[in-house]
Design a protein around this nucleic acid. Structure first.
Lengths: 227, 227
DNA sequence: TCACAAACAATAGTATTACTATCTTTTTGA
DNA sequence: TCAAAAAGATAGTAATACTATTGTTTGTGA
């Protein structure tokens, strides 16, 4: 099977981690370690010990741990956009394209054999718990100027364009999609940790949550744009 | 004018900051300092210097800075619930109650003379930028067991009950309201910092955003529940 | 195949953070 | 007024988030 590589914005790293063994190991083990410890307890020192390298070596790839998190989340958004491009190939009807996109957003994430280095299941848990921290900082404007959030914005724009095709009059295509992208993670987090804030959890079976989530997000979008 | 005091869950603090001068000063200056520095750069040491006290003294009120943030955000949710209770007094029709609640959620926050110690405008900026960090941690389950998120959950439940009165068949009252409460902050953040993710910003005038936000949230809710 | 630059490892060091501990002084309220 | 509670002063620690320097591999292209 072909192995792919997503092209990442160069401001996300000092040295491209996809080009060396050490770089790939950094990414691989960062995913495992943040998943395990959470972003706050994750440090370059712990990562260095885990991969039998040194802090200094990791600092040659990423300026600091914040940039490394931003890199992972950007990878995730790029991956999602690629999956949606792939999934909507040769589909003409915007209604159908939107439905496919929402399905991909909500679906349970499993290993993608095209990217053997990445544990997408663990990365998805990181996205759910940590992705908001990439932009909820005082440096958000500088980070944005460097293009670090291009992946998120690009995905939002793409899905918003499906909406505009369906209903050019609709006032809030970007707001609706950014809300849906965020809510898609939040509701899974709430179902698991703060069930009073969601209605998925009543079914008790976590496997069901992804279907609930898909249904919820689709209702949200289709009720809104066809009103 | 009468001065009020919101009763806070005792697990939010070690010593009640509303009962002493130092405690009130901690709250007041924490709001100013987090607003200024952001939560990551905020430390007890900087706060102590600012209020001419010591780290040790602050630690007698709050276990750590995370708990202090959780306290502030809990205060905000309690305050919102009180405003909604106040605003829906003697209103019978659930439709009307829901509309009032959404108006209060989206409205520009200004100084509330009932709580002279709290700078609600600054606190609102903190809520927008930092509130998600209260629960996006590895200790969320323990914090939840201690009841630290009761304010958020209680508010969500109240508004969800309005929805159930209007449409008892609706499947996602809590998910919809938790989504709306979060989106209400996110969209303002996006309008300001990542305008590609929102549609408010086109009007360029930040004063307009609150109206856009109210309109957006109301459409979201009313389209969804009357579908 | 050698040379040499790039990559990496090893080590050391710094300022700051997030606390804990202890002791003294001040405030307070019964 | 006097004891207890609160606050202040001071010190200390392990960990974090880096930076700097030097020495050692290793890969590749002439």
């Amino acid at each position: 099977m072909a192995t792919l590589r997503l092209i990442m914005n160069h401001n996300l790293f000092l040295r491209d981690p996809q080009e060396t063994n050490l770089g790939r190991k950094i990414i691989e083990d960062t995913i495992a370690l943040i998943d395990e410890l959470g972003f706050e307890k994750f440090t370059f020192k712990k990562l260095a010990e885990r991969i039998n390298s040194t802090e200094a070596s990791i600092y040659r790839y990423f300026e600091n741990k914040h940039k490394l998190l931003v890199y992972l989340i950007a990878w995730y958004w790029n991956w999602l956009e690629y999956k949606i491009d792939f999934g909507t190939q040769n589909v003409q009807e915007p209604q159908k394209k939107l439905e496919i996109a929402l399905g991909i957003i909500a679906e349970k994430k499993v290993k993608d054999p095209f990217f053997p280095q990445i544990d997408e299941e663990a990365l998805y848990r990181i996205v759910i718990a940590e992705s908001d921290k990439t932009y909820l900082t005082k440096q958000v404007d500088e980070d944005n100027k460097e293009g670090l959030f291009r992946g998120f914005k690009s995905l939002c724009k793409k899905i918003a364009s499906f909406i505009k095709e369906i209903n050019p009059e609709f006032k809030y295509p970007h707001s609706l999609i950014s809300t849906v992208l965020e809510a898609g993670h939040q509701q899974l987090f709430f179902a698991k940790h703060l069930p009073a804030l969601s209605d998925f959890s009543t079914s008790r079976n976590p496997a069901q949550w992804h279907d609930d989530n898909e249904d919820f997000l689709k209702e949200l979008v289709f009720n809104m744009i066809s009103a």
